[in-house]
Design a protein around this nucleic acid. Structure first.
Lengths: 338, 338
DNA sequence: TTGAAAGCGCTAACAG
DNA sequence: CTGTTAGCGCTTTCAA
């Protein structure tokens, strides 16, 4: 910038003015033009670190998801990115799974940002709550506003929550109407579940009780050696080998439903004839399997739209009252559930 | 930092020393201890922008991939992230697809970084080459070293290239051994292909010529309204409705193979009985479909390992001679190819 | 063993 | 309309 200024014998401030496109005719058209041209020619690029240090906005919004690979987060990210095309802000994706412990609760990323979106705050318990100031909930300890989204949304800051319960209930009623053994392919054994950690289990428990059925949990521990899908495939195969086959299976998510489908195929069982299957999340892949997998559709686009809406408003007006919305996921029945 | 210093009545420099963990006993143990404790207590967090501005390394390495969602890049990202656990560097993922045009060729991200890894430099043509200085190829115009990886690696900077050709040839020979109509589900029509844009087509062309077979291209244009998979599914369905069914289909990638499998199912065709199918990339999902899809396995982990190896070495020693490696993808035959 | 001071590249008063 | 100047938070000589 100084170079450009020197070359043109104007002051750096003038260059800064035109490059920042300050409105009003602070700078004469001729000067502006010359500066622009020279900057272009000299390949000037702003130093963002310096800009931020000098008090400028970073124009970065961070999206925090846990894991890039799982299809669910892929769709979350894609939906958010679509909000950010033709938008002055950049979206920066971070994945706290890989953050170094010593960086918690700041998820290992303290580069400048103007706001933070946390999708499914389902991280090593403590991270997110510790970012939120109990007394001044709107602006976080990071100094920027946070919007929390998803099933595990935190609800004392701006949030977009997705409620799965009605859809899960419908799914389980559907299964219960067609059989007596309804299993749940879950993350943890029942006794580990807390309201906070799984929206699904309480519904499962309630519906099964209502129908007078016995709970059957198929627990799929993750293992470092195997992928999530492999673990699930093995767990389901083992369970059925030992206990026989349920009439219906509801899975914690589509990843597990896909693995479950493979496990059933491994055992020569037919879906939906021998066993009905329903997943959860609504990732695109479910429509490409055979049979197409019934699922509970997470409203990716609506969440992204609302979250960005809340956040951008909050960035402009930090003392707005709490903004919130609750969306409802929808049961999509396909062949796998008969 | 100044606050911490003031609180302890030491100079900011002292605080900086201990916080940067400079070796040698520059600072007395007692002072060090007090500083550490006070910093902790006051919740001190370094301002990375300021650190960088003052000349410190950012400890950030950027990984540039095109698109988060597609399963292929998901596996690329995961493989790289595994290199970066327990590594002082942070990995920052960027996706130039969503970069604003005016930011090219800097892919919309000019936050500080110490190095750049470009995975499959398959972006709007110009981006990557324009980052490389023709005269001083090792260090890029960005001022940091670049390592290029993947099928479309640029080979005048440090690179890890993946050669698909032998595996593709094996795949096509396998198909050609079992039928006369071998189709290629491609991105573009044949006349668009250039050596640089598709490693696969030249092999397809060569093998088909050798067997005296006629080329059949099934072109799957992407459309903004439909997902890649949907587009492919429709394109394959239409093609077969019009031209009848080939004996073997080789797909540009697994995404397309999965969609092709769905299309074949839509038409009531059996794989591999009616038509043999082989994909490319080796994404995990291929093992979960029915039938499991034959594919060409991209060496995700090896690429990540070597790329990081090259880059970290280059960061330390900028004037090392060119580093390079070529890996070979491997054909994995599963049920879909008979 | 510690402190003072310059400067990284930029922005935003303020003065002219 | 344009230039001067004081920082932003930190690192790093250099001097004490």
């Amino acid at each position: 910038m100084a170079d450009v200024a020197r070359e043109l014998s104007v002051s750096p401030a003038t260059v800064s003015y035109v490059l920042n496109g300050r409105e009003g005719t602070l700078v004469s058209d001729r000067t502006r033009e010359r500066v622009l041209e020279m900057a272009q020619q000299m390949g000037y690029r702003p130093n963002r670190a310096a800009q931020v240090l000098a008090g400028k906005r970073s124009n970065v919004v961070e999206l925090c998801v846990n894991g890039f690979h799982p299809a669910f987060n892929g769709q979350v990210i894609r939906a958010f990115q679509n909000q950010f095309v033709a938008n002055p802000y950049q979206l920066r994706i971070v994945n706290p799974d890989y953050a170094r412990e010593e960086d918690w609760p700041f998820v290992g990323n303290d580069w400048p940002m103007d706001g933070l979106i946390i999708s499914d705050a389902y991280f090593p318990e403590s991270i997110v709550p510790s970012l939120v100031q109990p007394d001044a909930p709107i602006v976080s300890k990071l100094g920027v506003p946070i919007v929390s989204t998803g099933i595990y949304a935190i609800t004392n800051i701006d949030f977009v929550r997705v409620d799965l319960s009605p859809a899960i209930e419908a799914a389980l009623r559907h299964l219960a109407a067609h059989g007596n053994r309804i299993a749940y392919v879950s993350l943890w054994p029942a006794h580990t579940e807390s309201e906070n950690s799984d929206q699904r289990y309480p519904v499962y428990q309630r519906v099964l009780r209502e129908f007078g059925l016995k709970e059957e949990m198929i627990v799929t521990y993750a293992s470092p050696a195997m992928s999530l899908r492999e673990c699930t495939r093995v767990a389901v195969r083992d369970y059925i080998a030992q206990h026989g086959c349920p009439d219906g299976i509801f899975c914690f998510n589509d990843e597990r439903a896909i693995a479950t489908l493979a496990a059933l195929r491994d055992l020569g069982l037919k879906v939906p004839q021998d066993v009905r299957l329903i997943g959860c999340d609504g990732i695109e892949e479910t429509t490409y399997h055979y049979p197409p997998i019934s699922t509970i559709q997470y409203p990716f686009d609506e969440v992204a739209l609302l979250a960005w809406d809340f956040l951008s408003r909050r960035i402009e007006q930090p003392d707005l009252p709490l903004q919130s919305a609750t969306l409802h996921a929808e049961l999509v029945l396909r062949e796998s559930s008969g």
